Amino acid sequence: MELDSLHVLKNLTTLSLSFNKLSLLGKINSSGSFPNLTSLSLASCNLSEFPQYLQNLEKLIYLDLSFNNIHGFVPQWFLETSKETLLILDLSHNFLTGFDQSSLVLPWSRLLTLKIDSNRIQGLLPVPPFSTVSYIISNNSLTGEIPPLICNQTLLQVLDLSKNNLSGQIPECLGNMSNSL
């Protein structure tokens, strides 16, 4: 499917192409592409990299790039995508190895759900934004200890760290989250 043909749809708010037998072709570089898009589902669309046009989307609430063939680091520019609006992000079932950033906490200020399970993420556990309710990062290659900063997640209800290579002690403060977690 040629994406270039869709960029004329200026009023488009929701686009879901997931789990078809589609391969997305072409690149949209125009900063005016999809100015009103709030929901984008591209799961299982044979993507091999983060689509560049995502960096021009400022109103996304929901983004699903799961079950693709995206390899390597999550690029720095992607961490700026819809930073103030994104609520749900699914990057699961790819070949991601980590985040291309140095911040301790991921930047999306209103994020509720973050799914990055079933990738190849290495290194220390990335800390989700403090707004996060559900954080699923199982089946990766994380190492080191669970950072105590995770206990600042006062809204966290679901935390799945299973099938990693974490070590050390579980922070005591996680036990204090028994009313929500």
Score class of each variant (00 low, 15 high):
136 I>R: 11
110 R>C: 07
94 N>Q: 09
178 S>T: 03
10 K>N: 11
60 L>E: 03
95 F>T: 11
108 W>I: 01
112 L>Y: 13
163 K>M: 14
32 G>F: 06
180 S>D: 10
173 C>R: 05
102 S>H: 13
148 P>H: 08
67 F>A: 09
121 I>Q: 02
84 E>I: 11
103 S>D: 13
157 Q>E: 14
90 D>I: 12
50 F>D: 09
78 F>H: 09
174 L>H: 00
79 L>Q: 06
173 C>H: 00
176 N>I: 10
127 V>S: 08
17 L>V: 11
160 D>S: 09
134 S>L: 07
46 N>E: 12
52 Q>F: 01
26 G>P: 03
108 W>T: 01
42 L>Q: 10
32 G>R: 11
62 Y>V: 00
166 L>M: 06
56 N>C: 11
153 Q>H: 09
151 C>P: 06
42 L>F: 11
59 K>M: 15
36 N>K: 08
88 I>H: 12
180 S>M: 15
18 S>H: 01
16 S>F: 10
102 S>Q: 14
110 R>P: 03
95 F>E: 13
138 S>L: 09
146 I>M: 12
60 L>A: 06
179 N>C: 13
74 V>L: 02
123 G>A: 14
53 Y>C: 04
124 L>Q: 06
125 L>N: 05
141 S>P: 00
44 S>V: 02
115 K>S: 11
39 S>F: 13
76 Q>L: 10
169 Q>N: 15
161 L>A: 11
171 P>F: 07
28 I>C: 07
30 S>Q: 07
116 I>E: 12
50 F>W: 15
2 E>Q: 15
87 L>D: 04
82 S>L: 10
120 R>I: 10
62 Y>N: 11
6 L>C: 03
157 Q>S: 14
132 T>H: 01
124 L>S: 00
80 E>P: 01
35 P>T: 08
26 G>C: 06
134 S>A: 14
75 P>M: 04
127 V>I: 15
87 L>N: 02
100 D>W: 09
85 T>C: 03
165 N>Y: 05
37 L>R: 00
4 D>G: 08
1 M>T: 01
134 S>E: 13
154 T>A: 10
134 S>Q: 11
78 F>Y: 13
66 S>A: 12
19 F>P: 11
59 K>Y: 14
107 P>H: 13
88 I>R: 13
128 P>C: 10
22 L>H: 12
32 G>W: 11
94 N>F: 07
141 S>I: 03
71 H>T: 05
46 N>Q: 08
84 E>K: 03
153 Q>G: 04
13 T>G: 02
174 L>C: 01
18 S>A: 04
167 S>G: 12
80 E>W: 06
148 P>Y: 08
84 E>S: 13
178 S>G: 00
9 L>Q: 08
119 N>W: 02
162 S>C: 14
121 I>C: 04
5 S>Q: 13
44 S>M: 11
84 E>F: 14
71 H>P: 01
168 G>T: 05
101 Q>Y: 10
13 T>I: 15
1 M>P: 01
39 S>I: 12
59 K>W: 08
150 I>F: 14
57 L>P: 06
2 E>I: 10
72 G>D: 14
